[in-house]
């Protein structure tokens, strides 16, 4: 079982590809978006005049569209079709390939485990449980009336699989790919490749409106009184 984990680790390191860096215009667009979000979150750090200046600058740039990856020319094109862009197609193919490559060993390992472990119970728990636990403890055993205290071997396999994480950490170092849990998390984070395409112009306009309605307050307002109150509180 540990061997399967190690196998999975090395397979995934072999098959994984280095994520490609975005080209500069796209990077710039995303960073500017992040920048404006930073302004919205941390606006209290700067004075009102500094805040207003940034707000006006950003509204201006959005109107001109110069922050978009395509430059001002990219304004008003609407949402791009992901299938029409060859670079996008290539990226999606790469992702598909990666996922297929993940899928094949995964199903192999699963099939092997199924053939090996299914169909018999392996132990009896020393304490009674409610019938709800039947799904968890008796996977692969199709009997209705069996007492919940009996644990099927396939369930036992899954339980230990989740418990083996520290062992893998010990053998393979902390950022290994042996655990299934970590892998599923990763897949969720990657998200849907088709949903990733948005109309950036709309996004920028949305953020611009958010920025417009921010009610500004300044962290330095009354800071001397706060500090005085605190210092006198501690020294007296």
């Amino acid at each position: 079982m540990i061997l399967t984990g190690i196998l999975r680790h090395y397979l995934s390191t072999l098959l994984s590809t280095v994520p490609k860096r975005d080209p500069l215009p796209k990077l710039r667009q995303n960073r500017h978006l992040q920048h404006v979000r930073n302004i919205i979150i941390n606006h209290a750090q700067i004075s009102r005049s500094a805040f207003t200046r940034r707000k006006e600058w950003f509204a201006d740039e959005v109107k001109k569209g110069s922050l978009l990856a395509e430059g001002p020319a990219g304004k008003g094109q609407g949402k791009p079709n992901p299938l029409s862009d060859p670079a996008m197609m290539e990226g999606m193919m790469g992702m598909m390939k990666g996922q297929m490559a993940m899928m094949v060993p995964q199903s192999l390992i699963m099939g092997w485990i199924n053939a090996f472990f299914s169909g018999y119970v392996i132990m009896k728990l020393p304490f009674p449980l409610t019938p709800r636990f039947k799904d968890m403890l008796q996977a692969g055993v199709g009997t209705q009336d069996l007492d919940v205290r009996w644990v099927s071997s396939l369930s036992w396999y899954f339980l230990t699989l989740f418990g083996l994480q520290p062992v893998y950490n010990f053998i393979l170092g902390s950022n290994n790919a042996a655990s299934q849990v970590a892998q599923q998390m990763q897949m969720q984070q990657q998200g849907n490749p088709m949903g990733g395409v948005e109309d950036m112009e709309k996004v920028f306009q949305g953020v611009s409106e958010d920025l417009e309605v921010v009610e500004h307050w300044f962290v330095l307002e009354g800071v001397e009184d706060r500090l005085l109150a605190r210092l006198q509180g501690t020294t007296v």
């Binding site: 004075s47 009102r48 005049s49 207003t52 500004h216 300044f218 330095l220 307002e221 001397e224 009184d225 500090l227 005085l228 210092l231 006198q232 020294t235």
Partner: peptide
């Protein structure tokens, strides 16, 4: 309109100065 804060009062500046010196 510009949101500039008023200068601090003389008393609190003096107190801050004393506290800073002591600290």
């Amino acid at each position: 309109t510009t949101g500039d804060l008023a200068p601090p009062s003389l008393a609190s500046v003096r107190k801050l100065n004393e506290l800073a010196t002591a600290k």
